[in-house]
Design a protein around this nucleic acid. Sequence first.
DNA 1: TATGAATGAGTCTTCATTCAT
DNA 2: AATGAATGAAGACTCATTCAT
Lengths: 215, 215, 215, 215
Amino acid sequence: MATRPAPTGAPPPRWRRRAQARPEEILEAALAEFTAKGFEAARMEDIAAAAGISKASIYLYFPSKLALLEALIEAKVAPLAQQAQTLAAAGAADPLTALRMLATLATARMADPKVIAVPRLVIGISGRFPEIADYYRTNVVAKARGALEQLIEAGIANGKIRRVDTSAVVRAFIGPLFFEAMWTHVLGGETALTDPQKLIEQQFDVLLNGLEPRA
Amino acid sequence: MATRPAPTGAPPPRWRRRAQARPEEILEAALAEFTAKGFEAARMEDIAAAAGISKASIYLYFPSKLALLEALIEAKVAPLAQQAQTLAAAGAADPLTALRMLATLATARMADPKVIAVPRLVIGISGRFPEIADYYRTNVVAKARGALEQLIEAGIANGKIRRVDTSAVVRAFIGPLFFEAMWTHVLGGETALTDPQKLIEQQFDVLLNGLEPRA
Amino acid sequence: MATRPAPTGAPPPRWRRRAQARPEEILEAALAEFTAKGFEAARMEDIAAAAGISKASIYLYFPSKLALLEALIEAKVAPLAQQAQTLAAAGAADPLTALRMLATLATARMADPKVIAVPRLVIGISGRFPEIADYYRTNVVAKARGALEQLIEAGIANGKIRRVDTSAVVRAFIGPLFFEAMWTHVLGGETALTDPQKLIEQQFDVLLNGLEPRA
Amino acid sequence: MATRPAPTGAPPPRWRRRAQARPEEILEAALAEFTAKGFEAARMEDIAAAAGISKASIYLYFPSKLALLEALIEAKVAPLAQQAQTLAAAGAADPLTALRMLATLATARMADPKVIAVPRLVIGISGRFPEIADYYRTNVVAKARGALEQLIEAGIANGKIRRVDTSAVVRAFIGPLFFEAMWTHVLGGETALTDPQKLIEQQFDVLLNGLEPRA
DNA sequence: TATGAATGAGTCTTCATTCAT
DNA sequence: AATGAATGAAGACTCATTCAT
């Protein structure tokens, strides 16, 4: 959002770098405060303090608290959705392995509270700002679901996965991860996320082999 | 302002019953407002209006806004957890059927936005009131998880279910439902919840038969 | 603006009367503060203090500072314009006497700083709120001018006044009074307003007899 | 940021001249903003923008917003008062003609909104800064009144004007012009100022010939 | 001289909560 | 039990002014 001139010749003086970095520092601080207290309860003053600047300075970069929220979410959106699509596309040849890798990756990342901070925030404000929920659904969750469905479909097409309802599989894939992340970071429960490998193996054991005893 | 009939004889006058019902009406109104706007953004005045009383009257029943929130969550807790335990215990003999029934029931109920209103609210405030999140985790989610784990264990014990990680199965069971409910009611997406039977069959197809093509 | 129930039977308790009188007390205080410091520089807190209530209480009666300004001006408009029209109409038979009476009356009232407080305020905010200036012009000044023009026309019609430009006469009538009021109350100059009779006689001497020596 | 040509030789580079003109440009911009929005509501940033410089640069020339206001008023004072005195003195021989000329001149100039911008501004701030009102009264209005009174007295002395109250005549002279200017530029009414000649003739017709029909 | 960046102090407005009736 | 009126405390946002460069 902030135009950052490509560093051309001599190293830009340090104070310049500070000024350029401000918007991101503020967003980072805002995310932390919003996550910790919720959008409404978070005070601009605290965000400013966390970013190491004065309250008024935030307004040099963002016109309002709501704009801060929007910028925050937008800033986190592009990478996420794109990543999912890239990974899903890359794994089309061997979908089961790809899913396993994706699950491991996702699990590892979900161990970091920051990763679910935005989804959690979106849940919190969805009632008050439905457009933001819409935006998030369309640009993040729907895209991720779509990418995974394509992966499943590719698997079905090349015979690596039996003929299943793709949407159901995607839910069965995302749901438990999401649930575990909420359990851990929102509800404060003891987590299984600390051992991604084991978590995923257990999950895939169920997913791949089903529950019924085989003959 | 409301005319109050002089209390005549035996049958408790209707307005008495109203008064008795007040706390619940207030809680209902509070849940609606909290869900719609979040705890902080919800105004006591609006809650009062929704409950058909004056702002000051809320304080006759609840000492503060936070108390309202706590009472609200507590009121919804007991039934939920107990129900899960009852159902799980009842199904020990035939766990797979029991799971299928539970899933169908849960799905049907999750079609009603009110049902996830509380979990959603808890997510929203968890940062600000961790004790409430704790309370909810301990008294609702953990109990439900425990009940389901017992059911799975019973299934393993009587050979109806193969030897799996019970915790993983429970996540695989709850996660997708929870995720779909969030997708539908929080993010405003098109839902699969409207056809519980089909949703569950798809889900169980994956869960019971796995993903790999069988010989 | 505030509905005031006609006092029916027993004398309403004093506290009730207070509550009913609030809006007017606030308007009075607001006029004083606005006049003393200007609209922007006047603080709601000071207005509240002058009205003997808390800052927040103002908002029980007026939704915003601007609304206060509007209500204030509106409240002063109706009487003024109407009065001018009534008086002008009543004097049609003997226009010169009527003018003299009007001038005396106006002069006497203009000795009270409150009387020009609103016009002065309007001048101060006209740049920022042109609609208010429009409103004032249309509903007060234009009406007063119109009423006076009719009076002059009546005088011309019945031969008491010679054939002059009515608009010019009205300007010649209002202008000096307005100017003197500004000189006195805005610029803080020594005033001639303290002796209305003399002031008017001087003014009318010029107006009626002209400047040139008569033969 | 603006490229600054190395100061070469003799002719003062153009940018130097700009710098010299700065204070006046700023005052001009300030007058415009103050008039449009009032002293309090006018923002230093907007004044700077209108003057084509940065907000901080204003402080190179004026120590504060109030200083800007004072400088502004002072800058407009000297010419005005002096002009009135010069003109009045010049016309002593034929006061009626002189008055007519002065009126025509004043009317023509009052058609320009800028001309009454300062009086209007003074009215707006008089409550908050009485010293400024005092200053303006003493150095502008009182002087103009005095000059005109001298003119009238001269007229009386040489028999061109009958024995009238000089102060009243001056009010009768200034008042209508002032009033019409306010009506036009402050209240936004349709104006008679566009035809100075006619306006003055009408006004003088009343002033010189009175209202009563002559025998 | 000139300015982008930064901020302290201040103001409007909101709202949970209290209280007199 | 019920409420209209009142308010203290708090927070978003603004802006004149300063300062480092």
